[in-house]
Design a protein around this nucleic acid. Structure first.
Length: 297
DNA sequence: ACATTGCCTTTGAT
DNA sequence: AATCAAAGGCAAT
C-alpha cells in the first residue's frame, strides 16, 4: 500500500507528499531512535548503513541518501495511520496527546540495531544512550561519508560487534552492560536466522525468546518487539510510562519499585484499553512525558 | 515456586 | 562539589 506521492528532483532529492500526517520532528526526536541529529532544518541520520538527510517543508518530505522504498518503509509511511490512531483514541488523555503531536510514527528499525540499542538503554537517559551507541559504531562500524563530507559510522554488523573484546566494548562507556552486549552479539553472530525465527512467533512466545538473551528483560523485549518487529500490541513500561499510566489511569502505585507483577498489570491494562496498536499509543504518551514530569515529586 | 531487595557503570542535570 | 536519577536486568534472599 502506498499512501503518498513521490517525485525525484535534481541531485537525487526525493520529494514525498504523505497522504496522512507525518510529524518528522516528533518521530525522530521522541527517543525511539538514537542516531538522528537536527542541524538547521535538516535531520541527518544513519540507517541501513547509509547517511540519510530528511527535511520537512510545506507538508512535503525532502529526502536524500536512500531509495524511495526504504524511506517509505522506515518512516511507516505505507500506512493509513489515521485509522490506527482513531482506533486507540479511546479516552480524553490519549486524544489530547495525539492532538499535540499528531503525525508521530513508529519507525521500522533494524531488529539487530534495535536489540543492541535497547540493551544500552537500560538505566540510562537518552543523551547517555546516544553516546554509548555512537561509541559502539565508531569502534566497530564502517565509516560512511555524507554528501556534505561529514563522516559517520554505520551500526556494526553482528560479526563486527562480536569481534570486539569485552574490554573494547566496555570502553564505549557501556559499564555493566558490556557483558550483556558481548554475549548477545556472540549469540546472534552465530545465528543468522534469529530475526526471521522471532518474527514468525506469536507475540508472547517471541517475547520469551528475546528474554533468553543476556541483558534482555521484559522492558527491552517489548521495545524490540515494537520498534524492531512491528508488533504493535507491545506496550513497553519504563519509569515514565509507569508514572503516566498511574497519573492518567490510576494503575499501580509509585511508592515501591516496579515489580514484575505491576509491569504485567500495566501492560495488560494498556493492551486491553488501547487495543491492537497499544504500542503506538505508548509512543504518543512517551513523547509528551515532559508535561507530566512534575508527578515525579 | 514466587515476590522482593540490592547491586550493577557511567553520564548528565541540578 | 555532591547527589541523584536515568526508555532495567540479574542474582541473591
Amino acid at each position: 500500500m502506498t499512501t503518498g506521492r513521490t517525485d525525484i528532483l535534481a541531485h537525487g532529492v526525493l520529494v514525498y507528499e504523505p497522504a496522512y500526517p507525518l510529524n518528522l520532528d516528533a518521530t525522530l526526536s521522541c527517543g525511539q531512535l538514537f542516531r538522528w541529529k537536527k542541524r538547521e532544518d535538516t535531520w541527518q541520520g544513519v540507517a541501513d548503513g547509509r547517511v540519510i538527510s530528511l527535511c520537512e517543508n510545506g507538508g512535503r518530505l525532502y529526502c536524500t541518501g536512500c531509495s524511495e522504498a526504504f524511506i517509505i518503509s522506515y518512516l511507516h509511511l505505507d500506512c493509513a495511520c489515521d485509522a490506527i490512531v482513531s482506533g486507540f483514541c479511546r479516552d480524553a488523555h490519549i486524544t489530547a496527546a495525539v492532538r499535540r503531536i499528531g503525525g508521530l510514527r513508529i519507525v521500522r528499525q533494524d531488529p539487530w540495531e534495535c536489540l543492541i540499542s535497547y540493551i544500552c538503554a537500560q538505566n540510562a537517559n537518552i543523551p547517555f544512550i546516544t553516546r554509548m551507541i555512537e561509541n559502539l559504531c565508531r569502534a566497530a562500524g564502517r565509516p560512511v561519508t555524507a554528501p556534505d563530507e561529514t563522516v559517520r559510522y554505520a551500526f556494526p554488523t553482528p560479526a563486527a560487534l562480536a569481534a570486539l573484546s569485552l574490554e573494547e566494548i566496555r570502553v564505549c562507556s557501556l559499564g555493566y552492560r558490556a557483558p550483556y552486549i558481548y554475549k548477545t552479539a556472540a549469540a546472534i553472530a552465530a545465528d543468522s536466522g534469529w530475526a526471521a525465527r522471532i518474527r514468525k512467533l506469536p507475540f508472547e512466545e517471541a517475547r520469551r525468546a528475546l528474554q533468553a538473551y543476556p541483558g534482555i528483560g521484559p522492558k527491552v523485549a517489548d521495545c524490540v518487539l515494537l520498534f524492531g518487529f512491528q508488533k504493535y500490541e507491545s506496550f513497553p513500561v519504563d519509569v515514565w510510562i509507569r508514572m503516566i499510566m498511574h497519573r492518567l489511569y490510576g494503575i499501580g502505585n509509585l511508592d515501591t519499585s516496579l515489580t514484575p507483577a505491576e509491569y504485567e498489570r500495566i501492560r495488560r491494562f494498556a493492551q486491553e484499553h488501547f487495543g491492537p496498536y497499544a504500542g503506538y499509543a505508548q509512543e504518543y504518551l512517551f513523547a509528551v512525558r515532559e508535561s507530566y514530569a512534575d508527578e515525579i515529586f
